[in-house]
């Protein structure tokens, strides 16, 4: 499946791209990440823990010679941590010139979403989710939550501003 995903990821026209979501499973929930920002998908292993890192940072890993920071999606979304030893997938995204790995339970297919099925995230959604979800799509039999990688990676904005 990985191979297929990788083949699908590169450039397409802007309109088409906006409708392509890579779907992934996080604690039983179906989420999606826009394909254009995805660089790679691989099994999440050999992540080096970073002591004292902000909660949600799983650690750092070596992606073909580049050091990539791994972010635990469960933690970012306020979900309980996965069982120890459970297989996880790492979705490599590029944000602000840096590569990050978003760690999810599993990765499913890339789907094309038609704009009609798009809904704003409901106002009753919890704060954590509302920050990170950009939209909700109605699929057959289930709902797909589109996540905003920029928000998922916005750690300690205030602190950053303070430094510069």
């Amino acid at each position: 499946m990985n191979a297929q995903l990788l083949q699908m990821s590169p450039r397409r026209s802007a309109i088409e791209e906006s409708r392509l979501l890579l779907t992934l499973q996080i604690a039983g929930r179906l989420c999606g990440i826009p394909v254009p920002c995805v660089r790679d998908v691989l099994r999440a292993e050999a992540i080096t823990r970073v002591p004292l890192a902000p909660p949600g940072v799983a650690g750092v890993l070596n992606l073909r010679g580049r050091i990539v920071t791994a972010v635990e999606l469960r933690s970012r979304l306020g979900l309980p941590p996965a069982d120890r030893g459970a297989p996880q997938m790492s979705i490599i995204v590029e944000y602000d010139g840096e590569l990050y790995s978003l760690v999810a339970d599993s990765v499913r297919e890339v789907i094309s979403i038609s704009p009609e099925t798009r809904e704003e995230a409901p106002a009753t959604l919890g704060d954590t989710w509302r920050t990170h979800a950009t939209a909700v799509y109605q699929l057959d039999g289930e709902l797909l939550i589109e996540l905003d990688p920029a928000q998922l990676l916005a750690f300690g904005r205030g602190v950053e501003g303070g430094i510069s």
Partner: peptide, 17 residues
């Protein structure tokens, strides 16, 4: 250099492979 989100960690000056 460490990623921007880890830059406040004063215990570390960087990382390496």
């Amino acid at each position: 250099p460490v990623a921007p989100i880890l830059r406040d960690l004063q215990a570390f000056s960087g990382n390496t492979i």
